[in-house]
């Protein structure tokens, strides 16, 4: 790891100030960033730890019923505190990595990183959530812009993510056992005005909405409505764990399983 300056502010205002320094980078739970630093794939001049900022942690309910999760909330806290209001989201968080990863890793870190095989991007896009930063609000449909790419600007900090709570939802993850990430993961959520289906782990473009499945499910919310359906293999990732065709097939399977699990 290259050397860097380390700052651990206790207020968001101080964090924003610290992020103004040249080559400053935010540190969430460090579960992705610390291994990256060790490999010298990142070399920030300054790391600004968000771990001591209470105002961006925790789970609460907005007046419109949306569930608001602080950007610095760990996966373990979401697992416990979202269980009643949004069980599918809590279950997703509770199946990320392993217990020690969940005790450190945060929602903000996960969606800032936007790993193409990460779980949270599927929930954020599948719920049509709003990503709130220190400067603006970004709709999920505009937020994820490609593999490891997001709409976040330089120095922008994710302070909160607001999830509209669906009537029914479920996440199904086909786990890649060595990495513990999703080989393919599908988040299905049924709202009054339609169904959203978000797929992670599959596409070279990162998380995406499978609109054909959304249309089919909005008319008939049953696994049968997706009989024989799968997205095209073109543009899917291909590696030693699975070919593009295999991943495309899995998307169909995992979506049907998610519909069944949503009940």
């Amino acid at each position: 790891m290259y050397e860097f300056e380390f700052e651990r502010p206790t207020t968001l205002a101080d964090a924003i100030k610290a992020m103004g320094a040249e080559d400053a980078q935010a540190l969430g739970g460090g579960q992705t960033l610390i291994p990256t630093l060790k490999q010298r794939l990142a070399m920030p001049a300054k790391l600004v730890s968000l771990g001591a900022i209470d105002e961006i942690k925790g789970v609460c309910k907005a007046d419109d019923g949306a569930l608001c999760l602080g950007g610095g909330t760990t996966h373990a806290v979401v697992t416990r505190e979202a269980a009643v209001d949004y069980p599918a989201l809590a279950a997703l968080a509770g199946n990320i990595g392993d217990p020690a990863v969940r005790n450190r890793g945060t929602l903000g870190g996960s969606i800032a990183n936007n790993d193409p095989a990460a779980c949270y991007p599927a929930a954020v896009l599948g719920s049509g959530a709003t990503v709130v930063t220190n400067t603006r609000e970004i709709a999920a449909d505009e937020y994820f812009t490609g593999m490891f790419e997001t709409a976040l600007g330089e120095g922008e900090i994710i302070t909160e993510v607001r999830f509209p709570v669906p009537e029914k939802a479920a996440y199904q993850k086909f786990e890649q056992p060595a990495s513990r990430f999703a080989l393919v993961g599908v988040f299905v959520a049924k709202y009054v005005d339609g169904v959203r289906v978000a797929v992670t782990g599959a596409s070279e473009g990162g998380v995406f909405r499978w609109s054909e499945a959304e249309a089919a499910l909005s008319g008939d919310f049953s696994a049968g409505a997706l009989d024989g359906m799968a997205p095209p293999a073109e543009g899917m990732m291909s590696d030693l764990h699975g070919s593009a065709a295999y991943r495309a097939h899995l998307v169909g399977v995992m979506t049907r399983r998610a519909v069944v699990a949503a009940g």
């Binding site: 651990r8 460090g30 610390i34 730890s49 005790n103 450190r104």
Partner: peptide, 14 residues
């Protein structure tokens, strides 16, 4: 809480 000590900075444990 159980954490991996290789993936946390000492200063985070202040």
């Amino acid at each position: 809480d159980a954490v991996k000590a290789c993936t946390m900075f000492a200063l985070e444990a202040e």
